[in-house]
Write a protein that binds this DNA or RNA. Structure first.
Lengths: 329, 329
DNA sequence: CGGTGGTCAGACAACGCTGTCATGCCGGCA
DNA sequence: TGCCGGCATGACAGCGTTGTCTGACCACCG
C-alpha cells in the first residue's frame, strides 16, 4: 500500500480510501490510484485489515468426519450461509476424539474466528471455559452438551422413531425389533429410548427387543436370527442410523429374511436398493443452515437466552416398510 | 499480552517467549508468567502472530459443491493432510460458476492463504494473473486448466473406461453403448473419447453408440429403447459418472431391460443395488491427499516444474457387468 | 474582506504480536 | 581489580491496515 501511495503521490490513507470505496476522494485522484494499483498488482492484505478491525469474518465448523454424508451436507449448508454473509468457513475434523476436538476448538479461538458450529464428540463441554473466556459464540448440532446452556440444533429423534413404529404398526406389525448404534452416542440412546417408549405407549406385546451396537452384519445376525424364528417372531426392524441400516440390510439379505425395515437417516439411492428402504429422513442441510443462521444472529448481537431447536423429521415411505405387511394380507 | 506482562512484572517480549516456549527464560520467571496467563485467561492472537510471520498456516479447498460425496471425500483428505501439518483448511464452494470461483480465489489470495487446491469449474484459468502475481501455490484436481502449467491431479479416465469396455468384451459383449454427462465437462469428454477409442481399438462392430447429457432417466430412455431393440441390439451400457449411472439404472428398471452395466465412479451402497453395480472406482481420498501433499511440497520450497499426476482407477466387478453374459451362455 | 463551512487529503497511532538488537548482571579468569 | 563471555530480559520497530484527528484549500456569505 505504501508502494502504491508513493507511486501515486498520495498518502497510504488515500489508497486505503480508494480500495475500500470510501467517499471523500476526488474522482481523478481515485482514478490515478486505481491505475497504480492495477499496474503494481496490489491486493489488500485482509489479515491486516481484519486484525485492525477485530473481526475475522470467518466462522468454523467442527465435525467428526467431513467425508460422512451427513456432515458434508451440513458443511455445504453452513458454507453457503457463510458465503452469503461474506464470511469464510474453516472446517475441521475432530475424528470423534474429545481431546482432539478440544485442541481444534482452542486453535480456532486463538485465530479469533467469529463463531463456531460444532457437532460435539461427547457431552462433556470440554471447551466451555475457553469459549466462555473468549466470548466466542458457539452453536451445537445434532447432540447437546452439558454445562452452560448453549444454542443447540437437534433432530426430532423421538418423533422420527415414533413415526417409524406407528407406520409399521399401521401396516399390521406387532413384533418389531430395534437395532441401534453404540449407546455411547447420545443420538443412539435417544432413539433407543424413543423406541422403547413408543413400544410401551402403543401397548405392543412383550418387552421391546433392542440390540445396541456398534454393529456389523454379523453382530446383527446373532439376535436377528433367534428373534425372527423364536416364539412371537419379529416381522419388522427399525434401525437407529445409516450404518446400522446397512448392516441390517446385509444381514437380512444373507439370512434371506423378508422382514420389513424402516431406517433412521435417509441415504443416497435408498430408493434403488431392493427393496427400496423406507426411512426417517432428517435434513442435514436444514440443520446446518439453521445452525449457521443462529450463529450469525449471535454475531449480530442477539443476546437472548440460548435456545434449543428441534428440527422435524419426515417419514419417507418406500417398499421396505410394507413388505411383510403384504405377506400378511 | 501487555496485561500479562504488567501483571507478571516482565516485558511483553518475555511473555511472548514463554507462550512460544522459547529458550532463555528463567524457570521461575516462566512459571510466574504462566500463572498470570492462566489467571487472566490470556490466549495468543494467532492473527497478529501470523501477520508478523507472513504466513497464515492456512490452505484452502475450492470445489463445486461440498455436499457432493466426491468432493467431500476430497475435502476430508485435504483437511487431514492440513491438520497433520498444523494448518487449517478453508473450504469454499463455487457452485460450478467460473465467475464465482474467480471471486472466491481472489478472496482467498487476499487472505494470504498459503496455498489452494481447486477443482476448477472450467478450463479457462480465470485466476491465473492473480495467482501469478501473488505467488500463491495452487494445485488443480480432477480437471486440467489451460494457461500456465500447474500441478494437476487427474483420474485415469482413459484407463478406467478401457477397463470397463474390456471387461464387458471379455464377457461376450460386442454391442455396448456409452452414456456420458454434459460434454461441457472435461471429464465427460475424456471418458467419451476413451470409449470411442477403445471401441475402435478393439474392433467392435458398427460405429460407437454414444449419448451425451445432461441426462435424466427420461432422456436416457429415448436412445436406450431403440438401441436395445433395433438391429445389433446393445447388451451392455457404460456410464460416464455417478449421476448418469443413476439415470440409467432407473431407465433400465422402468423399461425392464436386463442389460449389463458398468458405471464410472463408485458410490455408497453400489453393492446393495439390484443388481449390484460393477464400477470403475476412482479414489477421491487418494486424489485429495495427493493434491495436498503436492501443495505442501511447494510450500516447503519445491521449485521443480509443474507436474501432472494421473491416479489409477480400479474396476470393481459386481454382478451388473455379468448379467447379460450369463443369459448368453 | 474576514469569517464560516465544506471538501479533500495526510499524519499518526494502534491492532497484537515477534525479530533484532541492546542492556544489565553475574561468575570466572588473568 | 579489570575484563570477558554468557545468560536473562527489555526496548523498539515493524508486519499492513484503518480510525481519528488535523490541516490546507476553496467557495460562499454577510
Amino acid at each position: 500500500m505504501a508502494d502504491v501511495a508513493a507511486e501515486a503521490h498520495v498518502s497510504v490513507k488515500t489508497v486505503s480510501r480508494v480500495v475500500n470505496h470510501e467517499p471523500g476522494v476526488r474522482p481523478d485522484t481515485a482514478e490515478r490510484v486505481r491505475a497504480v494499483i492495477e499496474r503494481l498488482g496490489f491486493r489488500r492484505h485482509d489479515g491486516a485489515r481484519l486484525m485492525r478491525q477485530g473481526r475475522t469474518f470467518t466462522i468454523a465448523l467442527v465435525v467428526e468426519d467431513l467425508a460422512n454424508p451427513f456432515y458434508s451436507q451440513v458443511g455445504a449448508a453452513v458454507e453457503r450461509e457463510a458465503r452469503i454473509r461474506q464470511h469464510q468457513l474453516i472446517t475441521a475434523s475432530a475424528e470423534g476424539s474429545p481431546s482432539r476436538e478440544r485442541a481444534v476448538i482452542e486453535a480456532l479461538v486463538n485465530r479469533r474466528v467469529d463463531g463456531i458450529v460444532v457437532v460435539p464428540a461427547d457431552e462433556s463441554a470440554s471447551s466451555d471455559a475457553v469459549l466462555e473466556a473468549s466470548h466466542t459464540p458457539i452453536v451445537y448440532m445434532d447432540r447437546p452438551v452439558r454445562g452452560t446452556p448453549r444454542d443447540t440444533i437437534l433432530s426430532d429423534n423421538h418423533g422420527g422413531i415414533r413415526s417409524a413404529v406407528e407406520h409399521l404398526v399401521a401396516h399390521g406389525h406387532r413384533n418389531i425389533a430395534f437395532y441401534g448404534d453404540d449407546p455411547a452416542f447420545w443420538t443412539a440412546r435417544q432413539r433407543r429410548d424413543a423406541f422403547v417408549a413408543t413400544h410401551e405407549g402403543l401397548g405392543l406385546p412383550g418387552s421391546p427387543r433392542v440390540s445396541m451396537g456398534p454393529h456389523s452384519s454379523g453382530s446383527v445376525q446373532e439376535t436377528l436370527v433367534p428373534w425372527s424364528r423364536g416364539p412371537e417372531p419379529i416381522t419388522a426392524v427399525i434401525t437407529g442410523n445409516n450404518r446400522i441400516t446397512l448392516a441390517v440390510l446385509l444381514a437380512l439379505r444373507e439370512q434371506r429374511l423378508p422382514l420389513s425395515l424402516v431406517g433412521f437417516d435417509d441415504f443416497e439411492l435408498a430408493a434403488l436398493i431392493d427393496p427400496p428402504v423406507t426411512v426417517v429422513h432428517q435434513d442435514p442441510a436444514a440443520m446446518g443452515q439453521k445452525a449457521a443462521q443462529q450463529l450469525f444472529a449471535r454475531l449480530l448481537g442477539d443476546e437472548s437466552p440460548a435456545q434449543t431447536v428441534v428440527m422435524p423429521t419426515r417419514l419417507i415411505v418406500r417398499a421396505s416398510g410394507l413388505r411383510r405387511a403384504a405377506l400378511n394380507r
